[in-house]
Design a protein around this nucleic acid. Sequence first.
DNA 1: GCAAAAGTGTTGGGCATACACCCATGA
DNA 2: TCATGGGTGTATGCCCAACACTTTTGC
Lengths: 240, 240
Amino acid sequence: MQGTPQPALAINHISVDCVVFCIENDELYVLLVKRDTNELHDMKLPGGMVYKEEILDVAAQRILKDLTGASVDSLRQFRSYSAKGRTNDPRDTHWLSHTLNTDIDSILTVAYFSVVNTKRTINKESSGIWVPLKSIGELAFDHNRILQDGFNHLQRIATVEPSILFEFLPRKFVISQLRAVYSLIYDKEFDVRNFHKQVNQMAWVKPLEERQKNVSHRAARYYKFDKVAYKRFFKFVANW
Amino acid sequence: MQGTPQPALAINHISVDCVVFCIENDELYVLLVKRDTNELHDMKLPGGMVYKEEILDVAAQRILKDLTGASVDSLRQFRSYSAKGRTNDPRDTHWLSHTLNTDIDSILTVAYFSVVNTKRTINKESSGIWVPLKSIGELAFDHNRILQDGFNHLQRIATVEPSILFEFLPRKFVISQLRAVYSLIYDKEFDVRNFHKQVNQMAWVKPLEERQKNVSHRAARYYKFDKVAYKRFFKFVANW
DNA sequence: GCAAAAGTGTTGGGCATACACCCATGA
DNA sequence: TCATGGGTGTATGCCCAACACTTTTGC
């Protein structure tokens, strides 16, 4: 900038990787895709290259849709990873150049995360597959690290903006479902009676008249999340 | 990927912008730089282009150092911004192409934030200038937005990892300084007596024997932040 | 002695925790 | 009638909030 000779500027391809969570049957799942080779680690986060002139958020939507069939609103980026040291594994580089038909010099990856309320958001014919977080093994590239960062991010967001927890649930849900979400994200058990009291005090969780049908036990009441009330009433207060 | 003709991939220059905070005399400051033209808005966040092969974190350090003289460890990225719609202002584009001597097609910006404990970290001869957050006007590009995001991020991080609040303070500090930090970041007043009690219960804030000297009032005791104790004792517990 | 900031204790109310039994339903 | 999960109340203790005066020091 002072007229002195400048080093060359970085010129990068941009990619996005998506960490998508879902809870079903008391289990926290992450959306992965199978890679189309048969080598050692064959799972990765859904992700791909951003096109020229493409908005990042749009690219994330498109890539997720293409790979898994999932249409997800509320994809939020949580951090970026520069390429250095990310693609040392020769299998990865081979796969990349094969897939992209071009020599990669460097890639900057922006990681997104999202929460969906049913595993059925994905297309069964796609390469997308839901894997329980607990049983995820070694992933391609640095995707284990990205996944870990994404989960930490989810936990932090949940503490400051608990509305995100309701994205795991359908519009109508019962309290035991909500309790399961809390248990999995905060990794702790909640007392049933106290949890009911808590929920009653959340002005943004509104009881419906409707109840479960055809269940072989007392039918539970449905509740819904009230976004307007949430915005009006929720104030995060940490006690220090 | 299926052999169908692909759209061109994004090829971007990468830039970083830094949001650096400092507290002095009960005032929260942000580090800005003056732009070297005399047009309407002449302040921006310190930032610049990343060089080829350069690690992002290193680039952020370098750029901050070059522009303001500040050597800051613990620069953390908090989100990225894709270029679309960021440089519509003709004065900005003119300035960019003038400064870079190249045609810009698009830039992806990664934003970093940091906290320093004294305004003296910057070089007075540099273009860096500390401006009270409250009195910051219109900035170049989308820097007002980035700044806002950065401050929100700081607040969120502070609630889940309060250790960051101690980065505003020198190694030895008195409780009224700590209280000022809490007040500014949480934007609320803390009762003096209750605050003392709180601090006494933080195992990671250790009293020293040393006291203030040459103050025209009762000399306050110095305290220090104990990182090891913090890691051992601090557990974030939200109450829901 | 006065101005300026440091430091200190108690009380009341509210909120989190712990805990066990009856209810409704389908099979 | 049994198995399954839904739903409810109370008592205790802890923590948070509110509140005012004395101490130390420099000038």
